[in-house]
């Protein structure tokens, strides 16, 4: 049995790979740079003795993602799919060029759909496994920043609802985590209004959730309250917020 982590070279994905390897999972690590993946793979093989395969892919190209996923060896079967891939851009505004917006939607949403669609038959055949998505509090309410990213993450939530619905009668479990601020490169150096969780804390939480049927869970949990407040904040106040 193997576990695929998409976006495993850094941040939450890397912490996930370590936490999974510590539990004995053999891994397929996916990201754009082989040097990062090979370093992590060597470390996991040496320190934890697990089997690790590296796959270089650019999530802005969903077709390629589907092709590469299809070529993954059938044995040992890949039964857990975790999507830690995420891409943001400082130029992601309401005025961004179509290609730029498309790249963000592809990397954050369409590639996840492409990978799931390609590998789902393997999970169905085994009638077990997990599909884990990572959303963002950016999806709570659209703002004048991370425009396409937030739209993609909102789309991801809808997509995971669909997955959960489609797979409800199977042995496959679906989990979507809406993450608050996490201390990774994505948030490094940003002035944030609320405290950050560590990538390790988040990864532990996600690994503990494997095998469970999770509609949508906030991590850290206090973000559920923040989400409620932001969602219900009167427009007159929200429009003035700069964040």
């Amino acid at each position: 049995m193997r576990t695929l982590v998409f976006g495993a070279s850094a941040g939450i994905g890397r912490a996930l790979a370590r936490a999974l390897a510590a539990k004995g999972h053999d891994l397929v690590l996916v990201a754009r740079d082989l040097r990062d993946l090979e370093a992590e793979a060597a470390h996991l093989r040496l320190t934890l003795g697990v089997g690790v395969e590296c796959l270089v892919l650019d999530a802005t190209m969903p077709e390629r993602v589907a092709e590469a996923m299809a070529r993954l060896a059938p044995e040992p079967p890949i039964l857990n799919l975790l999507f830690a891939v995420g891409m943001t851009s400082p130029r992601d505004t309401v005025a961004s060029a179509p290609a730029e917006a498309a790249a963000l939607i592809d990397a954050n949403l369409v590639s996840v759909m492409a990978a799931v669609a390609t590998l789902l038959p393997r999970l169905r055949e085994a009638d077990r496994g997990n599909i884990v998505g990572i959303g963002s509090v950016a999806a709570i309410r659209g703002r004048n920043a991370n425009v396409a990213y937030a739209a993609a993450k909102r789309g991801l939530e809808s997509y995971f609802e669909s997955l959960r619905h489609a797979l409800s009668a199977t042995g496959i479990r679906v989990q979507l985590y809406r993450l608050g601020y996490v201390d990774t490169q994505m948030s490094f150096g940003k002035k944030l209004m609320l405290p950050m969780a560590s990538a390790e804390q988040v990864a532990d939480r996600i690994v503990r959730g494997l095998g469970r049927d999770v509609g949508l869970a906030h991590v850290p949990a206090f973000w559920a309250g923040v989400a409620l407040a932001v969602r219900n904040m009167p427009w007159a106040i929200f429009r003035r917020l700069e964040f």
Partner: peptide, 9 residues
């Protein structure tokens, strides 16, 4: 200033 690179790129 502090930077914290995490990738070979």
């Amino acid at each position: 200033e502090l930077q914290r690179p995490d990738r070979y790129g």
